[in-house]
Each structure stands twice: as C-alpha cells, then as structure tokens.
Simulated scan of single mutants.
Amino acid sequence: MGLQISGIIAEYVIDEVLNYTKQKLTCQLPFIKKYRDDIITAMPEEFIQQSLQILNSFDTSKTLQFIIEVENNKSLPFLDMTVIREETEEGSTLMTDWYKKKISSNRYIHHRSYHPFNMKVNIIRNLKTRITKICHPRFINRNLKILSGILRENGYPYGLLNKIIHGTPNTLESPRQIESLQATNEEQTRRYITLPYIEELTPPLKKLIPKEKFQVATRNVKPLRSIFTNLKDPTPTLQQNGVVYKISCKDCEGVYVAQTSTTLKQRLSGHKSDINNIRRSCALAIHMIDEEHQPNFEEVSILNKEKNLEKRLFLEMVRISQEEHCINARKDIQNLSSIYYLLIEWDKRKKTRASTDIQSESLVL
C-alpha cells in the first residue's frame, strides 16, 4: 500500500475473491458493498464461519487472510459510517449514521492557522456535506451539533459555524456544486497552477489571473515540518536523489551546477569516469580536461531537492543563472524565460550593491 496503483490492484483482487466466495457459499447474500479491502454484507448467522473459511481458502499461500466483524447491538461500523439494522413491521431496514473512531483526535486545520480563509470555509462545508450524505435524516441534526462542537475546539468562531452549518439548508448538493457539475466541460479546458500562500500577496495576485483559463490552488509555505523537529536520521548527502547540486573547482572560481534523478554518489561516479577517461560529455568534464584543473568532489553541495523532473530542470536553470562564475554551457539555460532571467539579473545587481555598501561602511568604521 502507499502507491497510486495499490487501490486499483486491491479492487481487482477483492472482485476475484468475492466471485470465488459467492460460487462456493451455500446461501444467498442480499447485498454486498465494498471499498478497497473493506466489505460489508448480510447473511444468516450460521453461515458466518463458512464464509470466513471460504475467503481464507482463496490464497493457498496464506499471504492474504481475512477477518470478520459481526454486528453489535444491531449496528456495525463500515468506513466512516455506522450501519444500523432496525426491525419494523415490514421487516428489517438499514440506516446509516456518522461513525468516528474512539481514538479520533478531532483535529482539523485550526482557524488561526496560516491557510487561506476559503480553505477553512471549505473544511466546514465538506464535513457538513459528508454528514448530510451518509446519515439517515433522523441523525443529521444531532451530528451537525457534534460537528459544530468539534470545530469550536479547533478555534472556529460560533458565528461562522452557525452561518454555514445551521444557516443553510441540509441539501445534498449546494448551488455551487450544481454549477460545478454543469461546468464540467469548461473545467476540462482550464489549466491548474499552484501559488504559495502569502496572506498579503497571493489573494490580489489571484485576481490578476484569468479564471476562464486557469484554476489557481494555493500551497502552505509554513508546513508543520518547519515547526517540529525531524526525529528521523537525515539522509547522507551522497545518498540523496532528485537534487540540484553544485561542484566547485579547486584551481579557479568556476562552479558547475546540474541536476540528477539518481543518487548523488552515482552521478559523481559518472563525472569521475568522464574526467579520467577524457570523455567530453558535460561542461564539467570539458573544463577539467581543457584547463587541467581538479574538481572539488569532497565539498559537493545540494542546492535544491525536487522529485518532479520539470520543476528540477527549471531550478537547475535558475541556479546556473545565479552563479557569477558558472562553467555550464550556454545551452543549459536557453529554455529559461527572459522574464525570469531579468529578475535574476536584477537580484544579482541588488546583492552586489548591498555587499558594496557593507564594505564601504566597514572601511569608514
């Protein structure tokens, strides 16, 4: 589990298991509902053990094994629902209620957290929609009051909660959702872009982007990892992959910047092999061979970490442009937009002026 394809594989496997079980089971099942590897059904009590034995006989290697949970007080949890069996004059009927595990922390994005306000509003709306969709009408109002109390513990003001949770009808689809369904074809032609969320800058910047062409999403620039200490041992520099790195020259001020998807150790081995065998495969090897210089492999530094190739290539071009004594070939930055190039040059001149002012001040002192 954890891979994107894991859920799809689980669906296929469970379908095969269910087909195998239904062929061997000697009773009829009134319904079967499943999600990934969670299955809920109803059957006579005397067939419970038989069904478990059939399920576990599917995989002879015993790698895939199932367990069964039986209803308690005529109710059974399934995903984020509690399925309740109620006896009536017409027979048994099933109702669903909102289910929360006893170990649930009830923690959501705090109202004072550094996130866009519309994201916090959408949290309230989405939780209300979930309750409205999965709960029997008998339980909706009770669960909405529970939800309001949980969100109050997360710092949400009573007025906002009252307006969204209790001040709007408990419909399954809000007008905004209906409009979004009607505009599905239009959404397919729009491109999605992400911007870092900076409270004073991002909202006015979003207004400048045409909504008919782009859908803008924001990302948090203050993640939890910036607050809490990382308890895991850091990955050694040479074992890291998906990085933009810099190698300096021992005999001059030249530096070489590049990116790699493999581990840095493997990439440095390739550079060493190119230099030793006089292969002019990259700007680093060409510089070292022509100038008879030595690269400083011992002090290689990582400038950026990025798993996405396109983003990593962009970061590589930016880092090359930022270096004053870069030995990379001109073609390495030919795809960099002129706008970014001008911004980088402006930033370099600004830093040069700042360093000059500091030196002049130190001389005066």
Rank of each mutant, 00 (worst) to 15 (best):
N185P: 01
I165R: 01
L195G: 01
H166M: 01
K211I: 12
P236N: 07
T168R: 09
N154V: 06
I198Q: 08
Y156D: 02
P223Y: 06
P169D: 00
V221N: 10
E212K: 15
L181F: 08
N143E: 04
A217F: 14
V216Y: 02
T218G: 04
T218C: 15
S226A: 15
P236H: 07
S174G: 01
P196S: 08
K207Q: 14
T184W: 09
I146L: 13
I198R: 05
Y156V: 01
P236G: 08
P210C: 07
L147I: 05
Y192L: 12
E200R: 13
Q182K: 12
L224V: 14
I178K: 11
G159S: 14
P196L: 07
E153L: 13
K213G: 08
L181G: 07
T229N: 10
I150M: 03
A217M: 08
P169Y: 02
E153H: 11
L144R: 02
Q182P: 00
P157I: 01
T168C: 05
N220L: 04
L205Y: 07
Q177T: 06
K163V: 10
E186V: 05
S148M: 10
K207P: 03
H166V: 00
F228I: 15
L208Q: 12
Q215M: 12
D233A: 13
V221K: 10
T229I: 13
R225S: 15
I227R: 15
R225T: 14
G167R: 00
I150A: 03
I150W: 03
F228L: 15
T189C: 05
Q177G: 03
